[in-house]
Simulated scan of single mutants.
Amino acid sequence: MSVAGDKKTACVTGGNGYIASALVKKLLENGYAVRTTVRNPDDAEKNSHFKGLQALGPLTVLRADLNEEGSFDDAVAGCDFAFLVAAPVNFMAENPEKELIEPAVRGTLNVMRSCVKSGTVRRVILTSSAAAVSSRPVDGDGHVLDEESWSDVEWLTTEKPPVWGYSVSKVLVEKEACKFAEENGISLVTVCPVLTVGKAPVSKVYTSIPASLSLLSGNEADLSMLKHAEKSGGGVPMVHVDDLCRAEMFAAEEEAASGRYICCSVNTTVVELARFLAQKYPQYNVNTNLSGELLEKPRVSLSSAKLVREGFEFKYTTLEEIYDDLVEYGKVLGILHN
Rank of each mutant, 00 (worst) to 15 (best):
W155L: 13
V133T: 13
V124M: 12
V124P: 07
R122Y: 06
T127D: 12
P103S: 10
M112N: 08
R136Q: 11
V116F: 08
V121Y: 08
V116T: 04
G107N: 05
T158K: 15
K117F: 13
D146W: 01
M112Q: 04
S128L: 05
S135K: 02
T158P: 01
A130F: 08
V133M: 08
A131I: 02
E154L: 05
L126T: 11
M112Y: 09
G107C: 11
E148P: 00
D146A: 10
L109S: 12
N110A: 15
G140Y: 00
D152K: 02
G142E: 03
E147D: 11
R106A: 14
T158V: 02
L156W: 04
V111F: 07
E147S: 07
R123E: 13
L145A: 10
E147G: 05
D141E: 14
S134I: 02
W150V: 08
T157Q: 09
A131M: 04
A104C: 07
D152T: 00
D141N: 12
V124E: 11
G142V: 02
S149T: 06
L109Y: 04
P103W: 14
E148K: 15
D139G: 15
L109E: 11
V144M: 15
I125R: 01
V116M: 07
V153A: 09
V116Q: 05
S114A: 10
I125M: 11
V111P: 04
S129I: 05
H143Y: 10
T120H: 05
G140T: 03
K117T: 09
V121M: 06
D152F: 02
A132S: 14
R113H: 15
V153G: 08
G142H: 01
A131F: 01
V111I: 12
R136A: 13
